[in-house]
């Protein structure tokens, strides 16, 4: 198998080497999950979501799955609020990171640690 990019490399693929600052992005995810096949996660970004100050994109990344990318969300001022919930797979206990790109081009990140007791991807096929 080819080696997967590290979390930092995956984030660079999204940010293109621009500065990413901590803050404004909050990840809500249970600190301990039993089943890594469907982990509920909510990303909230502090933003007025107005025409000239809003979140453009949010990238969601993981540290230890076979692939670092989870999803990229495209939003704009019509979202009204920068909050997205979804369900992801986690192959093991690891860090999950969200990076938000604002309309002024600035980049912000938040992260969370998740302990997974039953990993995704281990179930047998029927």
């Amino acid at each position: 198998m080819t080696t997967r990019p590290t979390l930092a490399e995956a984030v660079r693929g999204f940010t293109g080497n621009r500065d990413v600052r901590p803050g404004r992005v909050k990840l809500d995810v249970p600190p301990l999950v039993e089943n890594g096949n469907a982990v509920g996660i909510t990303v909230t970004v502090e933003s007025p979501m107005s025409a000239n100050d809003h979140v453009r994109r949010i990238g969601l990344f993981n540290e230890k799955n076979p692939q670092a990318d989870i999803a990229v969300f495209h939003l704009g001022p019509r979202a009204g609020r920068a909050r997205i919930s979804t369900r992801i797979r986690l192959a093991s206990s690891q860090t999950v990171m969200a990076v938000a790109e604002m309309s002024d081009g600035s980049l912000w990140f938040g992260e969370a640690q998740v302990i997974v007791t039953l990993a995704a991807c281990i179930e047998d096929l029927l």
């Binding site: 076979p66 990318d69 999803a71 979202a79 997205i84 992801i88």
Partner: peptide
Amino acid sequence: IFAADFYPAMAANPFIAFST
């Protein structure tokens, strides 16, 4: 008003909640 690119780390039966 909203779009998303998904990768294999999205859970089966993908669920998404957003706002407008």
